[in-house]
Every structure is written in structure tokens, then in C-alpha cells.
């Protein structure tokens, strides 16, 4: 009797959802027919005609839409990977400051986390681009023989030129995500029981060594899932690049859709490219997870 009832509910839900979807698709087809458009991807091979502010593969406006989208995808990947490392660094620095026992450092770390998390990321990105980078003079403000040079064209370091858009996005994203990563690390470290701290202290192990060899390995299982979701958030947040004119995958899809009017196809392409990014990040984190949950660290 019970099985029959649950089956009935499911069939009902299935029918309702199917009806809604078919009505929506029907509307879509009618609307498309009215504007004399059909779904196809042939336009991907036609000339894009717009320039990209930066590219890692050779690109000219004469290249196809497909190529432009690929170049933009690589741009996205570049900024995501770079901010991934920098944000982890910021997170680790913030949590070390908190654990350092120095009240001033602790206060600074708390202030950083609280302030960054209470203002919108978009506002922070606009700040880094318009206030921090574009108001710099054309010649570097740092001494000329230093390995790092800061100008309104971005950061030049060790022979690498980072554009102002890229640098602003990198710094804004990393500072924002770093605050969340610090919270994840704090949660993980709090999950280690009090006794473990007392144990290594009473054994006379140095504070730093105890943190690295006793506390941190035990905190890792609690940290990795949170870290993964922060990295995925970072990838999603990188699409705000459009606000400061960095040619990432979303900005280029936006331009493509406005030029061709192909909203549905553009949506599918963006969806697939994000699926790919997410898969890369979560698989990489799975590998990390497997390494750290290796028996070397297990108790």
C-alpha cells in the first residue's frame, strides 16, 4: 500500500514537471519561430570581429567565434589558477596571524576577515581597478631597480607583464577568497580537540612544529571539502571580470550573444565551459584529498 502511494506521488510530480517543461519549450519554439531563428551552432565558424584585450594564444579579430571563446576560456583559467594560489597564501597568512599569539596581528586578521566579507566583491574589484591601479602614474612608483614594478599598466615582475585588469582581478579575488579560506582553516583547526594542543605542548614540542606536524594534519580532513567549495566559488566569482574589462569566458560570451543574438546557444557553451572548469578544480582537489588522507597522516 505504502509503495503504491509513493509511486503515485512520483508519477504525479513527473507529469507536472514534464507539463511545465513542455509548455516552456513550446513557448520557446514559438518565440524562436517568430523571430525566424533556429537553434544551430554554425555561427561559431564565422568571423568574430571583436578584439580581445589580452590573449595567450595568437588571436586577431579575423578569427572565428569558436577561437575567441577558447582564448577567453584560457584567460579565465589563467586568472583562476593564479588567484587560487594567492588566495590560499592570504588565507594561510591570516590564520597564522590569528594563531601567532600577538594581539595586534590577531586584531588585524580579524579585521581583514570581517571587513572583506561584509562588502560586495564587485565593489572591491571596482576599487582595485579604478582606485588602486588606474590612478597610479605611468612610471613605476617603486624604486626602479626593484624586481617588481607597479604602474597604471599593471604589475611587471621577473620579466612577466600582468595587465592592470588582470592584476586588479587577481588581487581583488584573492583578497576576497582569502578571507573565506581563513574561515575554513579556522573551522578545521577548531575541529581538532583541545587535548592535542595540550599534548604537544607538554611534550615540549615547539609551537610551530606542533602546529605543522600535529594540529594541521588532523585538521586537513575537515578543511579539504570547505577549501574545494571556496575554490569553486572563486572560479564562479572570476566572471565578475566583465565589470573591469578583462576578457574572460563570461565577458566574451556576453559580447558574442549581443552580436549574434544566439542566447540559447551561448548559454549552452557557457554552461559547458563552466562544467569543464568545475570538473578540473574538483578532480584536482579529489587527488589532493586522496594524498592527504593517505595512511602517512592517519592516526
Amino acid at each position: 500500500m505504502k509503495i503504491k502511494k509513493s509511486l503515485l506521488i512520483q508519477i504525479l510530480a513527473f507529469v507536472i514537471i514534464l507539463t511545465i517543461i513542455s509548455i516552456l519549450i513550446n513557448n520557446l519554439l514559438i518565440n524562436l519561430a517568430r523571430s525566424q531563428m533556429t537553434l544551430n551552432f554554425n555561427w561559431l565558424n564565422t568571423t568574430a570581429g571583436f578584439a580581445l584585450s589580452e590573449y595567450s594564444l595568437p588571436y586577431t579579430p579575423n578569427d572565428s567565434y569558436a577561437w575567441a571563446i577558447l582564448v577567453a576560456w584560457i584567460n579565465s583559467l589563467k586568472v583562476i589558477l593564479a588567484s587560487l594560489f594567492l588566495s590560499t597564501l592570504f588565507g594561510v597568512l591570516a590564520i597564522s596571524a590569528r594563531l601567532s599569539g600577538n594581539s595586534l596581528l590577531k586584531f588585524l586578521s580579524n579585521f581583514y576577515v570581517a571587513f572583506v566579507r561584509q562588502t560586495p566583491l564587485l565593489l572591491q574589484l571596482l576599487f582595485w581597478y579604478f582606485v588602486a591601479f588606474l590612478s597610479l602614474p605611468e612610471s613605476s612608483i617603486l624604486p626602479p631597480n626593484l624586481f617588481v614594478q607597479l604602474t597604471n599598466n599593471g604589475i611587471h615582475t621577473l620579466g612577466i607583464k600582468l595587465s592592470a585588469e588582470f592584476s586588479a582581478l587577481l588581487i581583488g579575488l584573492s583578497i576576497f577568497t582569502g578571507a573565506s579560506i581563513a574561515e575554513v582553516l579556522r573551522g578545521g583547526i577548531n575541529s581538532v580537540s583541545r587535548g592535542q594542543w595540550e599534548a604537544y605542548r607538554s611534550l615540549g614540542i615547539k609551537e610551530i612544529q606542533g602546529l605543522c606536524k600535529v594540529i594541521f594534519p588532523q585538521a586537513l580532513p575537515a578543511i579539504i571539502p570547505g577549501l574545494t567549495s571556496q575554490y569553486l566559488n572563486l572560479a564562479k566569482n572570476s566572471t565578475l571580470a566583465i565589470a573591469i574589462g578583462y576578457a574572460d569566458i563570461y565577458a566574451v560570451s556576453d559580447t558574442t550573444i549581443t552580436q549574434t543574438g544566439r542566447a540559447i546557444e551561448g548559454f549552452i557553451i557557457l554552461l559547458l565551459s563552466f562544467l569543464l572548469l568545475n570538473l578540473i578544480i574538483s578532480n584536482a582537489m579529489n587527488i589532493v584529498n586522496r594524498i592527504v588522507s593517505d595512511k602517512k597522516y592517519k592516526l
Binding site: L24, N27, L28, I30, N31, L32, A235, K236, N237, S238, T239, L240, I242, Y250, S253, D254, I257, A263, I264, F267, L270, L271, F274, L275, N278
Partner: peptide, 20 residues
Amino acid sequence: ALPLIAVLFFGQLLIPLFLP
């Protein structure tokens, strides 16, 4: 899996397409 800005953008573009 989707970035918010994409959901909002396609909300502006696609919702009219799915309406009668």
C-alpha cells in the same frame, strides 16, 4: 555550478523567450 552573473544575464535574456 553556474556563476550568479550568468544566471542573472540569462534571466534577463531567456525568461522572455520562455513566456507565451
